[in-house]
């Protein structure tokens, strides 16, 4: 029983991290039609900014804020420098550009910092356990679940209830019409990227907390998971991305527990096969209502 609860908690925590990334990916897709594969590098930037801040003697939590801020700045810079000039370009062009940014950043990390993993000293809460109803659970997993819930609720309220949130959604649905009702639509694109950067920053911290180190390609695996999560949920809505992330994380964690050792190397292949199976029955994703944008249906 204990192991079942632990597995579920671990799965939800991992899935929550994927969900944060998936929502960021889907938000950018929603406003710009771009699947940003450089989104994973925002995690890496968070990690290196955290390492840099810690090396300057900044305490962990302020350093964590520096990491999140770095991800936000990087996301905004991507929009202004790389993606805004390509607005209206084909999906393929945008996709290739995001791959290019991803590769360039990974090379820069490797050349300018190191190809080796940089260890990160995390606070005790990242490695301690708490006992809940007689079951020992990792504090980091509980913190992750709490943070994910707070962020998802906060983001939903922001998008649904605030004027800025409505404006982001309107700009995502119809850029020109949004301008024609007075929305500063360019700023809303920037805001969507900034939000996706902030979510990636938080996900990056949680990811570093689980790994305890930072390396140039640490963003690759989670961004692929997040991409699959958005596909599972349907590129069409916020809840879908969150649900897809949770499902993907749970699948990975449960399979890690139940698969015999000889099949463990095939775990990710099995997960992806299951994703394909889901898409056979729900080609537009579990919650999608079509090719509308995520932000549009928030």
């Amino acid at each position: 029983m204990d192991s079942v609860v632990q597995t579920l908690v671990n799965g939800v925590a991992l899935g929550g991290t994927y969900a944060l990334l998936a929502i960021g990916l889907a938000m950018v897709y929603s406003v710009m039609g771009l699947i940003n594969f450089a989104h994973g590098e925002l995690l890496t930037i968070t990690g290196y900014a955290l390492v840099g801040a810690l090396s300057l003697g900044i305490p962990f939590w302020p350093a964590a804020l520096v990491g999140i801020a770095a991800a936000v700045v990087a996301a905004v810079a991507m929009e202004r420098i790389a993606f805004r000039p390509l607005r209206g370009a084909s999906l393929e062009t945008l996709l290739l550009s995001s791959f290019a940014i991803s590769v360039v950043l990974q090379v820069l990390f490797a050349e300018l910092i190191s190809t080796r993993a940089k260890p990160v000293q995390t606070p005790g809460i990242f490695s301690s356990n708490v006992t809940l109803l007689g079951v020992s659970i990792g504090s980091l997993q509980l913190v992750t679940i709490g943070v994910v819930i707070v962020l998802l609720v906060g983001l939903t309220v922001f998008l649904r209830r605030s004027m800025l949130g409505r404006s982001v959604r309107a700009a995502g649905i119809d850029f020109e019409m949004a301008r024609l009702v007075g929305v500063r639509a360019n700023s809303m694109f920037l805001l969507a990227f900034a939000l996706s950067g902030a979510l990636a920053g938080v996900a990056g911290l949680l990811w570093v907390g689980q790994r305890g180190s930072v390396d140039p390609s640490m963003g690759l695996a989670p961004v692929i998971a997040a991409f699959l999560a958005t596909i599972i949920g349907g590129l069409g809505n916020l809840s879908g991305a969150a649900l897809g992330g949770l499902l993907y994380g749970l699948l990975q964690t449960v399979l890690e527990q139940v698969l015999p050792g000889s099949l463990q190397p095939y775990r990710d292949a099995i997960v992806v096969s299951l994703v394909v199976a889901i898409l056979l029955f729900r080609p537009n994703g579990v919650l999608s209502r079509g090719r509308a944008g995520l932000v549009r249906e928030a």
Binding site: M163, R169, M177, A178, L180, V181, G182, R296
Partner: peptide, 26 residues
Amino acid sequence: VALVPEGRHLFGSMSIEDNLLVGRVG
């Protein structure tokens, strides 16, 4: 100046009230 465009161009996946409130963004 406000335009009611040909084809209406409502924000279709937003509620009626949200469409109106977006019109108040300024």
